[in-house]
Design a protein around this nucleic acid. Structure first.
Lengths: 200, 200
DNA sequence: ACTGCAATGGTACAAAATGTACTATACAGA
DNA sequence: TCTGTATAGTACATTTTGTACCATTGCAGT
């Protein structure tokens, strides 16, 4: 059994991934190479090859590094509107300010051919979905919204639009937009017509 | 002045881009190289370098090739629900069956560092947005939906969710899903509460 | 059919990137 | 201090990438 990890290993891994992430954001996936990280950090190429014998794995680890420690704190148990806004602000911050916003598109693209990337996405998205879902369920329990509200679709609406705007349209996600999006979702959730049952 | 383009040029371009697209779909962006296309087509490497001196441009042209001739036929002028379904089926088909669905994520990722890729996306998305927008405007003219319906947001809802499901979640877009999504959108559009004006 | 022009194919070669092996040094932990 | 391991550095083999050159092929106009 192993006591503690050699701090040197952690140090090089951390420094290398920091640099790789930086390169990834600034110059794109093609620029993330052992040689480039060596140049940026001074960590010798042979050491980098020992840590990541295959470039693909290096890139995947960089992605994981970018997603960072995902500790989603629980939303306050206020009214639905406040809780949703809290979630949305959290999401928008992640897209606007953390490295995540800049590399998410790369990870998604990688997922097309790399199973690990897809797993990473599933993990992160699953976490966020569950998180928002809990908020809706709590609101149902407080009778703020109908018991048959289309929660799944409301969650998708809430999350997919900011991703789409940011990653695909390149449109800004500012304070005003957050307000209008929340308003849009909340009026749907609160009015809660029987969307799925009143089919013509 | 130039009469007609040498058919050989068109032939090699076409064959090269076909192969490049095939490689892109099957093996990802890193596999799209002059050498790989040479191996796949028999077109000599020197010829490929003459056509695309830089690999980046080669990839961008492959993206454009994937997006194909985007001739969006006008939707029928039926009731809103029918028109929207027509649009959504068209979009889902593009995501499910054409190369677009498989390479869209790659293009989006490329857009992060490449201006041309972003322009391509803007062009394609702008086209589709305008298209769906016309349908909503026509529905307004026919008094099917209120004059102050939040069209922009409804369009984003309609388009962003299938993209999100397909590209990010990897979830299927089948017939059932199309029905429920249409139902969701239509009930919003038709009920048309004053989403944006009844702020608390 | 003939001819000039341009595109292609093929080869050779230069340059750079990638991957591996080996040794000496520096550092962590006991 | 001592041992084991991680790192730095070097050297080298291999692959990939990019360029130059020339012979050949095919197109277009006469």
């Amino acid at each position: 059994m192993k006591k503690t990890e050699d701090p040197r290993i952690a140090a090089t891994r951390s420094a290398a991934l920091d640099a790789a992430l930086d390169i990834l954001q600034k110059e794109g996936v093609f620029a993330v190479t052992h040689a480039a990280v060596n140049k940026a950090t001074g960590i010798s190429r042979s050491t980098l090859y020992r840590h990541w014998p295959e470039t693909r794995r290096f890139l995947i680890d960089t992605f994981k590094h970018a997603s960072g420690p995902t500790k989603l704190e629980p939303a306050a148990n206020g009214p639905l509107r406040a809780d949703l806004k809290w979630h949305l602000v959290h999401l928008v911050n992640a897209l606007n300010e953390s490295p995540w916003g800049k590399v998410a598109a790369q990870i998604i693209a990688a997922a097309a051919t790399d199973k690990e990337a897809q797993l990473l996405i599933n993990e992160l998205m699953g976490e966020r979905f569950a998180f928002v879902e809990n908020t809706f369920i709590a609101a149902q329990a407080r009778n703020e919204i109908a018991s048959d509200a289309p929660i799944r679709q409301l969650i998708e609406l809430m999350i997919s639009v900011p991703y789409f705007r940011k990653l695909i349209l390149g449109a800004p996600l500012d304070e005003d937009w957050i307000e209008s999006h929340i308003e849009f979702i909340c009026s749907l959730a609160e009015n809660s017509p029987d969307y799925l049952h009143e089919q013509s």
